[in-house]
Design a binder for these strands. Structure first.
Length: 334
DNA sequence: CTGACCCTGAGG
DNA sequence: CCTCAGGGTCAG
């Protein structure tokens, strides 16, 4: 559910309130959230404890925290592996970059919540709690030096946290939103630039789409081609550009393919401006608040409702293992 | 490129 | 009780 705009809302919240802080604790309530961490909790602990958060970066739906050597309470410097030559000193005043990033992916139901000292609820039994407890599905928590906490809350456990070494981005351009340089985590190296990335080459992405026979919706969802788009914004972008989901990439003109990308970007920008899309409490920002874009959706989840453009009932069908929503009248196959 | 899998909770 | 929802990954 969280797609680019929602993840960007989270990135901004974290960047505002966690950059410069040192990580002082790691609490793992459900090890399944660390599924992608080789070496498990012990390895993650070694990377995180004593590290200072120097930046919060996003590419597509992937988020990562850049880590620098922080100063521990007793004044000693935390250690961390530094891959030779990869990192000189991107860090701030009190430490060199550790060469590792903390990756975060929210999956379907993941949230990163920031809780300040006062609002920390008295520790209930593990992740058990009343249905009203917003932290009921808390899986992992990072304690920060100021007493605040970053909580990964994830009902369905598709998301996760894991450490990944930084490598240079092949094009030498900033690795993502919020990135101080061209270094990106190895784990995000396969992820294409997203539609809100100033360094994305839209005509080139359009050309690559047109070189593939797969249905255009599958291409929009291919994170290695263009990242950040999920089922909701794919349907909305296709609706905005009046393109049918099953149109083969090869059937698109350069003009149409480019327009589709621009329309999808525009939808995501509008969603971001109102805090993202959420249908319920499952997607929220770092303070637990929902965005307002759901009320602006034209196609997604609107089966049977009139198309805002022509009034025809929106249709829904299974597509590539997911559901697809479109207007049968004004979204024509090409 | 399709489908299974990872998961849980809502809804039929 | 069964099915469905869905991002990413990986086997086939």
């Amino acid at each position: 559910m969280p797609e680019l705009p929602e993840v960007e809302v989270v990135r901004r919240g974290l960047a505002e309130r966690s950059v410069g802080r040192t990580i002082t604790g790691l609490e793992v309530l459900d090890a399944r959230s660390l599924r992608r961490q080789s070496g498990g909790e012990g390895r993650l602990r070694a990377v995180l404890l004593g590290a200072r958060i120097s930046a919060v970066v996003r590419r597509g739906k992937f988020l990562w925290l850049r880590l620098a050597d922080g100063t521990t309470a007793d004044g000693t410097t935390a250690d961390g592996p530094t891959p030779d030559g990869a990192v000189s000193d991107g860090g701030g005043p009190d430490g060199a970059e550790t060469g590792e990033a903390l990756m975060a992916h929210l999956g379907m139901s993941g949230q990163l919540r920031l809780t300040t000292g006062e609002s920390l609820t008295p520790a209930r039994g593990a992740s058990e709690g009343p249905a009203s407890d917003p932290l009921r599905h808390r899986r992992v928590s990072l304690s920060l030096e100021d007493g605040s906490r970053i909580d990964l809350v994830d009902q369905r456990l598709f998301g996760g946290l894991w450490a990944s070494p930084l490598v240079p981005a092949p094009d030498g351009l900033p690795a993502g939103e919020g990135s101080p340089d061209a270094l990106l985590p190895e784990a995000a190296a396969h992820v294409a630039r997203d539609l809100l990335d100033p360094a994305i080459d839209l005509p080139e992405v359009a050309r690559r789409m047109r070189a593939r026979r797969a249905p255009v919706k599958a291409l929009l969802l291919d994170q290695a081609l263009v990242s950040g788009i999920g089922n909701i914004y794919a349907d909305e972008g296709l609706w905005a550009a009046r393109v049918r989901d099953d149109t083969p990439g090869t059937a698109l003109s350069q003009r149409t393919a480019h327009a589709l990308l621009r329309e999808t970007a525009a939808v995501m920008r509008r969603a971001l401006a109102v805090g993202g899309t959420s249908f319920d409490a499952l997607y929220v920002n770092v303070d637990g608040r929902s965005g307002y874009f759901a009320r602006s959706l034209a196609a997604y989840g609107k089966e049977g409702e009139p198309c805002p453009r022509c009034g025809t009932a929106i249709r829904r069908r299974a597509f590539a293992g997911r559901s697809s929503h479109f207007c049968p009248r004004c979204q024509r196959a090409r």
